[in-house]
């Protein structure tokens, strides 16, 4: 198990290294000089050159790459071109919104999807199963921003239970923060839950057809006991895969939802940074997201091994 974890860790470090090279290269080849963009069309070439110097855009590619990587390792992500504040501060601030939002949405979608998938699988072909399959189909088909607007219309405008957008900050108290994140989390969670419920259902149905379920029934287990004691854990493996993918998506993919609800999250930060050619912010946030995705993959790999003894020896 330890060896398995170590080998996963090594591959994690290598992936990060590869990702940093790719991100740096892509940002370098994107046309558009941030200094020229910041100073406007009529700037004198000397001024632009001076700003380039100040922003650290001169020097060889190799030196700048090393600079960037070593800076990140020590927690120095550089200075935002537009805001003129350390990128690290910006990111930490935004993470304070995006991370809880992603976690909240993930918790919601898991809490909904697993029982629903289980319920549908146990009553395969029955009315419950058909209803669940219909509802999840709809959940996948409906775009989440449209669903978000619907939520705002009903729960904020009509009923007035939640505010329509914005985030008061965690200084305003935990409950106020959670309340502000509830509608966006629901909007993010439901389509994810629909996918997850379907995966859970089909994984369980497949597991229920396995020979060892028949063996379990022959030992005297009821159908319910066979599901709880044998099928569930075996069905978890595909579910874990999807969960890992979904967390990464929720962290990085909340751009539209954050815009609908005016949330100061990572998604909005990266969106604004791209439009303003604030490439150092783009670079850092993308790298951070890659880091998050790789860490989540690592955790999922460990979870596989915890669930499935066949993986532990590798």
């Amino acid at each position: 198990m330890l060896r398995y974890a170590l080998s996963r860790l090594v591959s994690l470090a290598l992936s990060l290294l590869a990702a940093s090279v790719v991100i740096f290269a892509v940002i370098e080849v994107i046309p558009g000089d941030p200094a020229a963009y910041m100073l406007g069309l009529n700037a004198a070439p000397e001024t632009v050159a001076a700003l380039r110097e100040e922003l650290g855009l001169t020097g060889s590619l190799w030196a700048r790459y090393l600079d960037w990587v070593s800076g990140m390792l020590t927690g120095d992500f550089g200075l935002s071109y537009t805001y003129r504040v350390p990128v690290a501060d910006l990111v930490v601030q935004r993470l304070g919104v995006s991370l809880p939002l992603a976690g909240y949405a993930l918790a919601l979608s898991t809490a909904i999807a697993l029982p629903v998938g289980l319920w549908a699988a146990a009553r395969r072909g029955g009315p419950v199963d058909l209803a669940v399959m219909g509802a999840t189909q709809l959940g996948i088909a409906v775009p989440n921003f449209w669903f978000a607007m619907l939520l705002v219309l009903v729960f904020a405008v009509k009923l007035g239970w939640f505010s329509a957008g914005g985030f008061p900050g965690w200084e305003g108290g935990f409950l106020a923060g959670i309340k502000a994140l509830t509608l966006p989390a629901v909007a993010l969670a439901l389509p994810q839950a629909a996918i997850l419920a379907r995966v859970m259902r089909s994984a369980l149905i497949e597991t229920l057809g396995q020979d060892y379920i028949r063996s379990a029934r022959a030992k005297g287990l009821t159908q319910g006991q066979a599901i709880r004691r044998h099928a569930l854990r075996n069905a978890l493996i595909p579910v874990l895969t999807i969960l890992g993918l979904q967390f990464s998506f929720l962290l990085a993919g909340a751009i539209i939802i954050e815009n609908v609800f005016f949330l100061p999250g990572l998604g909005r930060l990266i969106f604004q940074a791209i439009t303003q050619r604030d490439l150092i912010v783009v670079e850092s946030v993308v790298m951070l997201l890659v880091f998050a995705v790789i860490v989540v993959t690592f955790v999922v790999d460990l979870a596989y091994a915890a669930v499935d003894p066949r993986l532990r020896r590798r």
Binding site: S215, A216, A218, H230, R310
Partner: peptide, 24 residues
């Protein structure tokens, strides 16, 4: 359910798949 396993036991053809792979 009470009869199965207690009064009648059964084994099947495919021993490779007849056991739960994630339980010792």
């Amino acid at each position: 359910c009470d009869v199965r396993g207690r009064q009648i036991g059964m084994i099947f053809q495919e021993p490779m798949t007849a056991l739960n792979p994630v339980q010792n």
